[in-house]
Design a protein around this nucleic acid. Structure first.
Lengths: 202, 202, 202, 202
DNA sequence: TATGAATGAGAGTTCATTCAT
DNA sequence: GATGAATGAACTCTCATTCAT
């Protein structure tokens, strides 16, 4: 008798999270049933409630789990860089890496966020606050060091950067991730750094 | 016979759309009930079904209606411009104008990270597809004219631009629209045109 | 086209109450399902929720409805009497009348050993409190007039009287109500008035 | 090997019964969960099923256990008396003693009886049949000896006596048992013996 | 014996949709 | 066209019961 195939509680929790992500990504959160999640996870419906208090909590726990991963990747990536340019590059690159790694989750996130109730959506967005703050810190550091132009509002710049990162990453992911991660990240960095228009006589 | 206060069918349809937008924005689509929409519109629940086949169609019709308005504003704005620079400026400005005018709708819509979600029964996408295509056309025109840098993939650039526009517009709107529309639009244009980082010795 | 068979909302509410009483009496409250009540009432399950907020409220509304009827009968009966003896007779008689008239409900209720249980979300009690208070008032009036013996605690006497009334009524009802109402009520009154034991040399 | 603290099966069974009584009295039978009973008993949920076949049987076993105790107390009390008057006094006193001793159980019984399904309720009532029969025998003995009035139906009298005993005992218990047992029992006996109304010209 | 994770039938409740008026 | 009472399928969540350890 080999205990190898014994499923530990932590594994079962993960299995349910994985199944939930899959089902929610496929059918949308509200349209998915706990039955479907249970089926996908290979457990009985009641079992889910041993690990998660409710369907809502299943979603928010899933969000937390993934957001924490992203946060960790970002922090690690940014820490290795010494200057603002490097930090921005790392920040962008980490996003693309995360999109590649958590493809299904990011599709779920971008597709379902708008359909949730505001409370649920707010709960989800909370996780991203840390990311926004970190980005803003880097930009403000750049401004104070004279590396980032003073002509822009730092908050605005933060949203602009993250907005383009997510949009490009989403498109890249949705179209099959055919381009190299590094190339796409580089382009975004270059756009943010130097823009794309050739000087006109303004 | 007092026909003065008689509400025309078109008006009633609009009233329901307006109410639906309000209710959906407040509670999220799936969490909102037809009862709530009927209440907000001041009609009986059954009446909604005289104008819309189902709850889903109520949402997609709402999306279509608003997206058409945006499309129209964009087309008008872009048509007045003669060169690529002007068209891009007009495109960006029109977005901000629309956000200001359709504040509630955009808050509803923007919880979907930009306009990027190819979802909602494929119908919402139809509207946004036009916008994306138009943007991409301008950018490609710019590339072929040598105005837009060849170092970037045009599709990627399209998403990057729209992504930053929506993100900045959303933040602007969510924080009370205190800054001038023109200023914010200008900053986005400048960022897209020239970037924000001071040259480093690369 | 005859509108006679049109069911008014009030009628439907009553029909549901009637059905609920029947089902609850047959299967017990907790063991009964809303499906069973809906079936018995000849309506769809959801219809019940148009008239009652929840299963619990269905029960308490039922209790209220029947208790109010009993209260009304008691008040009417007692009001016609001029002296304490008459009031007590009327009180007892009214109880038996009510048992005869609301046979099913009292079987349902009386499984709670009289009306004495301070339960059912405090709401049923409200109804029975009124009855208890009225009884106690009559007894206290009797005490102050010298009609009722001072050797007994009035509250205790109240419970003793109601306890025997309900117990006898329940047994009378459960055994088919073969005896005359008046006779049974008389016996209870006589027992309360004079007791049943022949004097012993105490 | 420390066997000292080893709990014997009988003890564990008792512990579970005790816990069940407590939990049921607090939350009601249907509202209580086996989890709560297990917690209160300090055993695992599965253990309960080693001693009781089902939740229903846990309740009926509890009822049987307590009813047997009451029966025993009554038999012992009545046996010591030689005449009918003494037997009735003993019967009444034993009831009050039992209420005092099994306070929690009696509260449970009177509060929950009406909410059970008829089968379960009937099962519970079975236990009281012996008590009813014993009471009726005493009364019939009194009738044949000329001690109890012939103006009353013996069965009715039985229910009247038990009804007042339970009602007064319940009220006494619910209000904190401040009065002396003997006094309360005496009053009930006196009421049954001689009534409480002063003679009117009947 | 004892455990408690797992089960899954079953309950109350909601709500998009219909249709007689 | 307009209504809103009625419907009933479908959902989330509970919990008595089981059984591998």
């Amino acid at each position: 008798m080999d205990g190898t195939y014994q499923v530990s509680p932590a594994d079962k929790r993960q299995a349910i999270l994985e199944a939930a992500q899959h089902v929610f990504a496929e059918s949308g959160f509200h349209t998915s049933t706990m039955d479907a999640v249970a089926d996908a996870a290979g457990v009985a419906k009641g079992t889910i409630y041993l690990y998660f208090k409710s369907k809502n909590e299943l979603l928010t726990d899933l969000m937390d789990d993934r957001t924490n991963k992203l946060t960790q990747m970002l922090v690690e990536g940014v820490e290795t860089a010494s200057d603002v340019h490097g930090k921005l590059k790392a920040l962008i690159a980490a996003h693309f890496d995360f999109y590649a790694r958590e493809r299904e989750f990011m599709l779920l996130l971008s597709r379902q966020l708008g359909l949730l109730s505001p409370e649920l959506a707010a709960r989800v967005v909370q996780g991203t606050t840390f990311l926004t703050n970190m980005t803003q810190s880097i930009i403000e550091e750049g401004v104070s060091l004279g590396v980032v132009s003073r002509d822009f509002d730092p908050v605005r710049l933060t949203y602009a950067l993250l907005g383009m990162v997510h949009a490009v990453a989403y498109q890249w992911l949705a179209s099959g991730m055919r381009a190299e991660v590094a190339d796409v990240a580089d382009q975004v960095y270059m756009l943010f750094a130097s823009g794309v228009l050739h000087t006109e006589a303004q």
